[in-house]
């Protein structure tokens, strides 16, 4: 079974992109305040069966990107531009009603905090069947066994009993599994996981990551993995996009990007993580904080924190330049990583 799944996956991977984000911009605008570019011209593709990582620290725009794709940003107070092409349709041009028909069916999302994304006063089973009722037109009675099946598939023991449980009766890992079951209910073609393991303990994180990996391999679902944890990315993603200040600064397949990071930010991130497999040598932190960023429109935002800035860094905006399967936005790339 796994071999055929692998084969199917290899076939679909060469296909045209399933999701193609082009020049996505999200600007938050409050009256009397400077507009804030949370996402500033982000473009990337996701092919069927592929796992794409969006990595960066808080405030880099990774979550806003996913909310924009899902059409979950509020209408007021922000401006969204660019295109989000999902299988031939620009999701940004859809009406709320049309988007509701797709959300949960073609595209599903798993959020960071399972307790606040589950309804506390509705049993978990009903929250799974809701999706089936809405998109498949099933009635609750017929959907219940299917919901139990889904819970079983994501590794919840004793699903027939658990289906009646309320979210507070489940542990954190169990809730995250339930959330994944809800996301998978209609076999979506694209799953967006926004920091799905950040709120969990490491042993539970390992379980959830193994589950996601297995689901992607078995079903051929494309996965966008949003995380701050480079370790999670290293084990899971086919392609990695590193975001800084709302722009993609580096992109590449996971092996080369970890072996030879070219952007000083990627390199700096890798140097600042204490590693379990390395002895206690001194860490090389990235100096300063995001508050020191320069505006992208006439400089490289990362220049004030960069380990090797040159004069041009504070004068012109670097462009994202693609060579082969790597892309880089830097005036003075790292030649000798770490």
């Amino acid at each position: 079974m796994t071999t055929t799944a692998y084969a199917a996956r290899a076939d679909t991977r060469s296909d045209a992109p399933l999701l193609s984000v082009r020049d996505l911009q999200v600007t938050f605008q409050r009256r009397g305040e400077e507009p804030f570019h949370a996402v500033d011209g982000v473009s990337f593709d996701v092919r069927p069966g592929q796992t794409v990582g969006l990595v960066g620290e808080s405030g880099c725009g990774k979550s806003v990107t996913s909310l924009a794709i899902m059409g979950l940003l509020p209408r007021r107070g922000n401006r969204i531009s660019g295109t989000v092409d999902f299988d031939g349709t620009d999701l940004l041009s859809l009406s709320d009603g049309q988007m509701r028909d797709r959300r949960g069916k073609d595209i599903a999302m798993v959020f960071q905090d399972p307790l606040s994304s589950l309804n506390p006063v509705v049993p978990v089973g009903i929250q799974v069947t809701e999706v089936l009722e809405r998109h498949r037109g099933m009635n609750r009675k017929a959907a219940m066994p299917m919901a139990a099946d889904l819970l079983k598939r994501v590794g919840i023991p004793d699903p027939d009993r658990r289906i009646k449980d309320y979210p507070h009766q489940m542990s954190g890992g169990m809730r995250q599994r339930a959330l994944i079951a809800i996301a998978l209910a209609c076999a979506p073609r694209l799953l967006i996981a926004d920091e799905p393991t950040t709120a969990l303990d490491v042993t539970i994180q390992a379980q959830i990551l193994a589950l996601l990996k297995e689901l992607v391999e078995d079903t051929g679902t494309a996965l966008i993995m949003i995380t701050h944890d480079l370790g999670v990315v290293a084990g899971l993603c086919d392609e990695v996009n590193v975001l800084y200040g709302g722009k993609i600064v580096e992109r590449g397949p996971r092996h080369p990007i970890f072996r030879t990071p070219r952007h000083p930010y990627t390199n700096g991130l890798l140097g600042s993580i204490p590693r379990l497999d390395a002895a206690g040598e001194r860490l090389t932190p990235i100096p300063g904080s995001v508050a020191d960023n320069l505006p992208w429109d006439h400089a490289c935002a990362f220049a004030p924190r960069c380990s090797q800035p040159i004069a041009v860094c504070t004068q012109t905006t670097p462009e994202l330049e693609t060579t082969g399967d790597r892309a880089l936005r830097c005036h003075n790339p790292v030649e000798d990583p770490r």
């Binding site: 490491v202 042993t203 994180q205 390992a206 990551l209 944890d229 480079l230 370790g231 999670v232 990315v233 290293a234 084990g235 996971r254 092996h255 970890f258 890798l270 993580i273 590693r275 379990l276 497999d277």
Partner: peptide
């Protein structure tokens, strides 16, 4: 616990 910690190195992972 030790084996569950992800390591930022695809080759080890």
């Amino acid at each position: 616990l030790l084996s569950a910690v992800p390591i930022p190195d695809p080759e080890i992972e």
